[in-house]
């Protein structure tokens, strides 16, 4: 397994509150890594460390090492805009801009300084294809994105993230607001996208983690309890707390 992201003894604080404690975790390149655990366990906090989204919250502090391609994400000279281009993110609720479908996807390349219209049009098409949305929207690219269904809006947000060619895609419960068919499309998409990207997904659905991920990490009370190949973690966990959580004995 080639390591794309590596955390070594990572602690994270919201003010005085230690939300993450001593997290050492390797995230494999072109793999899907699922983060599971009960609410408040730190999995979303960890996810948001990976592109420094937590910087937007006042009073937060990270200690330890978090490496992307062996470079420290939290180093003083890191440009967070560049970091967030390399490490894209999709959220729980689809959040398209109140613009056209085309403009939503073109937004990223534009703010990155690309002006060539043909290049942008090609990038929009490519991203929508990669997000498995092109066939459904190619005839209405200039309609409002808000007219799309929830599942389509979420795939549009994925297309928007893909348009800046990220290396890592963070997904924070990307299908929790979707019906089973839309969920399946997102999961199918994850299988396709991992050929090009490294994916880290937070999910409350253990079945979803089992279906989409190569490795699963179980967080509890700010600590990484266990990480293993997904098939091993869900059939033969080593830690009692993992077993208790995934069999519904607590959480």
């Amino acid at each position: 397994m080639n390591i794309k992201v590596k955390s070594i003894g990572l602690d994270f604080y919201y003010g005085e509150f230690k939300a993450l404690e001593d997290i050492s975790l390797d995230i494999g390149e072109n793999q899907v890594t699922a983060l599971i655990g009960p609410s408040g366990c730190g999995k979303s906090t960890y996810l948001r460390c990976l592109n420094r989204m937590n910087d937007l919250i006042p009073g937060t502090k990270a200690q330890g090492k978090l490496l992307l391609d062996e470079e420290d994400i939290y180093a003083a000279d890191v440009d967070v805009v560049t970091l967030r281009r390399r490490v894209g993110m999709v959220f729980q609720k689809p959040n398209p801009f109140p613009k056209t479908i085309f403009e939503n996807v073109a937004y990223g390349p534009r703010v990155n300084g690309i002006k060539d219209k043909e290049f942008i049009a090609n990038r929009v098409e490519e991203s929508l294809k990669d997000a498995a949305l092109w066939k459904e929207v190619r005839d209405r690219l200039h309609s409002s994105a808000l007219g799309l269904s929830g599942g389509q809006q979420q795939r549009l947000c994925i297309a928007r993230a893909l348009a800046v060619e990220p290396e890592v895609l963070l997904m924070d419960e990307p299908a929790s607001a979707l019906d089973p068919i839309a969920t399946q499309k997102i999961e199918d998409l994850i299988h396709e996208l991992k050929k090009k990207l490294t994916i880290v997904i937070v999910t409350h659905s253990m079945q979803q983690a089992a279906r989409v991920s190569d490795r699963t990490a179980f967080f509890y009370m700010g600590k990484l309890i266990e990480v293993d190949k997904t098939e091993t973690l869900f059939t033969k966990p080593k830690e009692r707390r993992t077993e208790d959580y995934i069999t519904g004995r607590f959480g």
Partner: peptide
């Protein structure tokens, strides 16, 4: 949809 010990 059992997991771990239940599944085994």
């Amino acid at each position: 949809q059992p997991m771990a010990g239940d599944l085994r």
